[in-house]
Design a protein around this nucleic acid. Structure first.
Lengths: 250, 250
DNA sequence: CGCTCACTTGACGTTGCTCAAACCGAGTGG
DNA sequence: CCACTCGGTTTGAGCAACGTCAAGTGAGCG
């Protein structure tokens, strides 16, 4: 698998040794690797394949997903510039990865990576931190999927994207959504129709405003927070919640 | 928090140094620690508390969960004898932990643990492996919550428990379920009523048989597999699934 | 211009949630 | 030994959110 038809990947990439300079961040490790290009829709690797490489996303967006036996697809995450994919892997990929947009990645041999990390007390905490973040994100997603309504899911998703955009320096309240509605639906455990309807409803409420085909403007951020059933990943601090009476689900 | 009212925990536990013998498994690390007892319902730690300790479950069952702002509870996992809780943590607990049954645990200081691991090339792969397993489990749970019907969730859950029991040496097809229906419901993203109805339906189909109050006998394991929407954690090998046409959700 | 593909909108059906009542085993006290 | 209570659980009836099916819209592109 992974025929890498039009991948710029021929050279001695796997054996990068990085003599001399001890890298003290994961990013640095990848910096010397050549950039490979993926066109929109192209696969990077498949669930079940031997996990020989890690990847750093340089530019663009990927989806990672599982296909279950009856053909249903579950998207477990989206990857953006700066993300590393494959840290939490043993010998096989747990999921498939595909480019949503045209994407640039850097590749690093898993074995070399493990060696680098094993030999560097600098790197280990960073790897560990990334694993923890990944775990925290997975738990947030479980919360979302466990007990949030369609609208709450959409709002949570949009807030995450907004937060990410903000941390990337985007100051205006415009969210880029390179993925299709089907991607969003498969990520949030909904259908395209429900996703579409929820977004329509939010725009008609004046919370969102459409900006071109693949972007949304957040008009009322506070309303979005309100409607997201706010628990996680915004206020990872204020642990107040005294009364624990259960509320109806929806 | 964590007043440890009736915890047998007074001595110099945190500073266990383990002179001389380099431990080469995590279990061994905990072996020297005193056993603490929790009565059913007792809390071990709370979401948001400073994560000062890791715990090994020696005996009994714990639930780990989050409470979201409106009081809804999401159980993200159950812990059984042999499990370690807290490996995937940074400075704060991401979830609360409570004993379901009377439970025995061993405690280990996070700082000491990190030191041990940092200094031992033996231990690191094991820690890493546990993290990966945790991650894989989280992904399986996301798949379950994303797109499985109530019955599929129940069947998947029961199969997991069966598998666990089997790996613990239990040969007969009896599953112990120390947790309440509410626990199961909050774990599977359902209500108690739906859990109850699903189990009733499965017993009336002859797939299950009730054994006492808190146990179930699996009469037709194959049917259970069939009905689980089988994708994950049974056959982590057979990656065939050619056709990818989507099937209706339920 | 006319295709396709992503998306939107509408009508309808079903799953699973809500509310409510009955059930049952385990304690507890008379 | 029985009555009583009290959780946890089961069962039933009704309903609403969301999925399904189907038709319509609009943008991109050869």
């Amino acid at each position: 698998m992974l025929q890498s038809a039009n991948l710029h990947y021929d050279k001695q990439i796997n054996d990068a040794v990085l003599l001399g300079s001890e890298p003290n961040s994961i990013q640095e490790l990848f910096r010397k690797q050549p950039v490979e290009r993926l066109v929109a829709g192209q696969s990077l690797f498949f669930e079940g394949d031997a996990a020989k490489h890690l990847f750093e996303v340089v530019e663009g967006t990927l989806r990672i997903f599982k296909i279950i036996s009856d053909g249903r697809r579950v998207i477990t995450g989206f990857l953006h510039a700066g993300d590393i994919v494959g840290v939490s892997l043993k010998d096989r990929y747990l999921y498939s990865a595909e480019a949503i947009t045209n994407t640039k990645v850097r590749r690093f041999s898993r074995k070399a990576f493990d060696n680098e990390v094993a030999g560097s007390p600098q790197l280990r905490p960073e790897v560990f931190a990334r694993l923890c973040d990944e775990m925290a994100a997975a738990q947030d997603q479980m919360v979302l999927l466990s007990c949030k309504s369609a609208e709450e899911r959409i709002c949570t998703f949009l807030l995450r994207e907004l937060l990410r955009a903000a941390s990337d320096g985007e100051v205006d309240f415009v969210i880029e959504l390179p993925m299709t509605r089907l991607d969003i639906a498969d990520y949030l455990g909904l259908t395209i129709e429900t996703v579409s309807r929820s977004i329509t409803k939010l725009t008609s409420k004046g919370v969102l405003a459409p900006v071109g085909r693949h972007s949304l403007r957040v008009v009322k951020r506070s309303a979005l927070v309100q409607l997201s059933g706010g628990d996680d990943e915004l206020a990872r601090d204020g642990w107040k919640l005294a009364g624990c009476e259960r509320r109806p689900r929806h």
